[in-house]
Design a protein around this nucleic acid. Structure first.
Lengths: 197, 197
DNA sequence: CGTGCTGTTGAACGAAGTCAACCCTCGTGG
DNA sequence: CCACGAGGGTTGACTTCGTTCAACAGCACG
């Protein structure tokens, strides 16, 4: 079960952001194109990132090519913040994005940063709770609808602050986020389209 | 689908911890028996809690009696910390537990508290990522094994610091945590027992 | 003009859900 | 004392939702 080695090998050879600039100053911005690796699971967790615009996906890989997108991080959110020394999830941009980079050691020093982070983490933990409900107790159709509605809200929010851009997620990415296969995602979306929106 | 209105009605009428003492001082301890309500979804989110001993489950309810345990909070973890004004998840003790209560407004004031919380939230977010992988991409057997191993680790940790107690989770609770039905949990555990541990 | 992605749809299969029967334990009260 | 019912656990038989395998269409790119 769970076939479809979803991620091309090539992507794994890509270097993570800042891996070549270990001394880049904290708070520095970084613009990334679509599908750029921000952090790789297993790497030393020296930096974390605040998403300023765009979107980042955090994912984990299992044997047999199974992938689970554990989180989609929207503007304001934090990605790449590990609890141990090593990153346990990988992060990659879903679309062209601007990130702000911080050193992990800054968290111990700057109180202003902590104030900022605490609120974000609360929101992300709450979003993860929602996601757990989707993954654990919703049907394929409910999961797809939940995601679509959420993306619609995010776009609406983005439209008020800046330019609105349709969030591009491939069927594979949607499937890996919702714990389904790309075929079921496809069928479900076709069904929904055939009926209404 | 998803029958089994898992939670007895009676429990919903139970008052949440501290609901009768809105002015209890921050940092005060509170000892609770098994299956006591700590916070209820929908209530005003004035307090949050650090688990000192025992374990707390955070859960959300859907229509048709579907329940999802979104998180199991072990000693050191935080529960009842909402991102908005209202609690979105309910929390309940899984076993006799000691909690330390804080006011939400303390977070804005005390830097020491923030330092403490940030680390905890990181760990809990990472645990949620693990859980998302289980819910989204693992088979029933893998989920059960993952949970058993995790509980074993928690017990081992508890044994070094204090007294070791078997964590009691009913089949229904396990099922609601793993996104399965109690029947499949039962079958899976029987199968595992028939083969080895 | 192939070759490689992504998306779509069909058909068959299987893991987990549903429905249902039954066991055991425990507490309560006639 | 034991009858009773409630709650948790176990197992069986059947169903179903989502997966798997497969074929094919559109499109971009070299």
């Amino acid at each position: 079960m769970f076939g479809h080695a979803a991620v091309s090998i090539e992507r794994f050879n890509t270097k993570a952001a800042f891996s070549d600039r270990p001394d880049a100053p904290s708070g520095s911005q970084l613009k990334l194109a679509k599908h750029r690796v921000v952090v790789r699971a297993g790497d030393q967790a020296e930096r974390f990132f605040e998403v300023e615009s765009g979107a980042v996906m955090a994912y984990r890989l299992l044997a047999a090519g199974r992938r689970q997108l554990v989180e989609i991080v929207f503007p304001g959110g934090i990605c790449g913040l590990a609890s141990g020394d090593l990153h346990e999830s990988s992060c990659e941009t879903l679309m062209p994005s601007v990130l702000r980079s911080f050193k992990r050691s800054d968290l111990a020093r700057s109180d202003a940063l902590r104030v900022r982070i605490v609120g974000r983490l609360q929101a992300q933990l709450s979003a993860m709770h929602d996601h757990a409900v989707s993954l654990g107790r919703k049907t394929a159709e409910e999961r797809v609808c939940t995601l679509i509605l959420r993306l619609r809200d995010v776009e609406r929010d983005a439209a008020t602050s800046a330019t609105a851009i349709a969030l591009p997620m491939s069927r594979t990415e949607i499937a890996d986020y919702l714990g389904l296969t790309l075929e079921t995602v496809c069928r479900t979306i076709s069904d929904l389209a055939r009926r209404n929106l």
